[in-house]
Design a protein around this nucleic acid. Structure first.
Length: 78
DNA sequence: GTTGAGCGT
């Protein structure tokens, strides 16, 4: 199950996402979308979780949780 | 140098 994480802080790395989602389940893939030129974060990332139950648990638990200065938003990807 | 709704090299 692919998850979309948006409204991330610019300084947030994929290790942060990985660690954050690992608290609620297995994370097989974590991809932070970076800018090709600057290499800075675009502010959103993708997370792959094998178990759908843990994925939904991670969504409901991590959605709208405060990260850095803003609240992150997690939902199922396309 | 920032922002902020999005569905990705």
């Amino acid at each position: 199950m692919k998850l979309l994480v948006r409204n991330l802080s610019r300084s947030t790395t994929e290790q942060d996402i990985r660690k954050l989602f690992s608290e609620h389940g297995k994370v097989t893939e974590c991809t932070l979308v970076l800018d090709q030129e600057t290499g800075h974060s675009k502010g959103f990332a993708f997370v792959e979780m094998p178990d759908q139950d843990q994925a939904k648990a991670a969504i409901t638990s991590l959605n709208m949780t405060s990260l850095a200065k803003s609240k992150i938003r997690v939902k199922k990807a396309h």
